[in-house]
Design a protein around this nucleic acid. Structure first.
Ligand SMILES: NC(=O)c1ccc[n+]([C@@H]2O[C@H](COP(=O)([O-])OP(=O)(O)OC[C@H]3O[C@@H](n4cnc5c(N)ncnc54)[C@H](O)[C@@H]3O)[C@@H](O)[C@H]2O)c1
Ligand SMILES: NC(=O)c1ccc[n+]([C@@H]2O[C@H](COP(=O)([O-])OP(=O)(O)OC[C@H]3O[C@@H](n4cnc5c(N)ncnc54)[C@H](O)[C@@H]3O)[C@@H](O)[C@H]2O)c1
Lengths: 225, 225
DNA sequence: TCAAAGCTGTTAATTTTTTGACAGGTCGTG
DNA sequence: CACGACCTGTCAAAAAATTAACAGCTTTGA
């Protein structure tokens, strides 16, 4: 037996590019483009064509030899690879500011992650309706996960409660956690976690801003000579 | 003259780890820890100590020879490197669901990014107060950027308007854009952009979820023999 | 006072990722 | 039909990132 199922032993860097390919391809599809070459697609994403082909090479033949990719074939192929050929049932845990914003974000649905429930401990929030999904008490969570075969939980509770909620999610059979709380979650090996750390994003931006400002100061000094 | 100011020619991968180091160090500081070795710090972040030292090596001596790092020295050093030694004045453009969530997110302030203004075109939103910052009309934006020396804009407008708003921000002297709209912004070379793409995050999670599910199916089959 | 145990900064080795190169296939056109 | 312009899949080369190794310092305890 292989250690990893086919198509799962892929570098992270490649996995992070797949959604970008898919997004761009859907855009092309929407405006009626039928064929696209690796060079065209790569250039529109500001990467090298050889990298795109290399990425696709992990998953095998997308095109007839000598011919460009067919958008209509590539889109479902990528969706299958990413795991969104079928909708991936999801829930939001924590109906605070961020949880509500996400509940209103219809792109999640469109992109294959329908929200099957929103949960919170705050009684004042229970019953609120966000685009069809009603906030429910945490007591209902396990039942909904089970009944709706929920695979992914979007975690938007305060950091102090994140681990406790995670333990419940894992026990209930959740397979993936999209974690917005600024802390590391402990989970067993058969559960995937993706941390979305805003602090990392804005601080890496800040680093670049600092460098830009330093450089422009330097340039001004040079001009003052 | 050097092509890049000291401490700016650093790999992206390293830059993305700096905020994690800082966060962990602040935590240690809060509980009174004075010294920390590269191994302790690295292990708590699930990376190799040699990588941490290698990262720090881009910026030069943080410790007296033979002695562990001093938390009280390292925290301000990292803040300076990241560019948040002084507060980095910021604004939010787009006071919709996500913009409001961010306006309420006090961590931004705490971490060195005070919100000096929130802007929107929707008259119904103007005047709303979020933790002291009031939503203003877009007409006021340039004046506030100028008056408050705003460096970073957090962009939470619909994708179709993102480029137009960006052009205004750039013209007004913004140096960094934290972009939540799912599209690529065109900016001159002396403006930094950081895209926060939720789709990339949740889809890369989905990929891993798919692999976990496939593996567990496979295992079940093996057990059924 | 000396050895052992820790520690960092630095460089070298290793691994991973990106990029380049090209064999072979397709297509449209003259 | 032959040619040039494209195309992909594949593998090799180059570049970049991670990891290991170690010199040289500090402290502790016998
Ligand atoms: N607001 C943002 O823009 C933002 C951005 C990045 C990260 N975050 C992180 O996301 C999380 C939520 O942020 P927020 O601004 O929405 O906070 P919030 O306080 O507005 O919302 C948190 C919600 O979680 C609920 N909650 C608390 N304990 C719970 C539990 N045990 N089970 C279920 N629900 C529980 C609360 O009732 C509340 O409604 C925090 O960890 C925060 O650090 C927020
Ligand atoms: N809601 C989410 O959870 C979420 C998550 C990730 C990314 N995003 C992205 O963030 C952006 C905002 O999402 P949202 O859910 O807050 O949408 P929203 O519609 O709730 O808010 C958008 C706001 O932008 C304002 N606006 C429109 N045009 C403007 C302009 N030219 N100048 C200034 N303001 C303008 C609107 O009045 C509105 O208040 C979108 O691009 C969305 O794709 C949202």
């Amino acid at each position: 037996m292989r250690k990893q199922k086919k198509g799962c032993d892929v570098p992270d860097a490649t996995i992070l590019r797949l959604p970008l390919y898919l997004e761009k391809l859907k855009l092309l599809q929407a405006i009626g483009v039928e064929d696209v070459s690796s060079r065209q697609l790569a250039e529109s994403l500001d990467i090298k064509a050889s990298q795109l082909r290399h990425d696709f090479h992990y998953f095998g033949g997308f095109s007839r030899p000598g011919r460009p990719y067919q958008v209509a074939k590539l889109v479902p192929a990528l969706e299958k690879i990413i795991g969104i050929a079928e909708p991936v049932h999801s829930i939001i845990v924590g109906a605070g500011h961020l949880g509500q914003a996400l509940a209103n974000y219809q792109n999640l649905d469109v992109q294959g992650f329908p929200i099957k429930g929103i949960f919170d401990v705050n009684p004042k929030l229970i019953g609120l309706d966000f685009r069809g999904a009603v906030v429910q008490d945490m007591d209902e969570m396990e039942a909904v996960i089970d009944k709706e075969a929920v695979k992914i939980a979007i975690l938007t509770v305060p950091a102090v409660h994140a681990q406790a909620v995670t333990d419940r999610l894992v026990a209930a059979g959740i397979v993936g956690i999209f974690n917005f709380a600024p802390m590391d979650l402990k989970v067993p090996a058969n559960v995937a976690v993706r941390n979305e750390r805003m602090a990392v994003g804005i601080m890496s931006l800040s680093f670049k801003v600092k460098c830009i400002l330093q450089n422009s100061e330097e340039k001004e000094e040079a001009e003052d000579l």
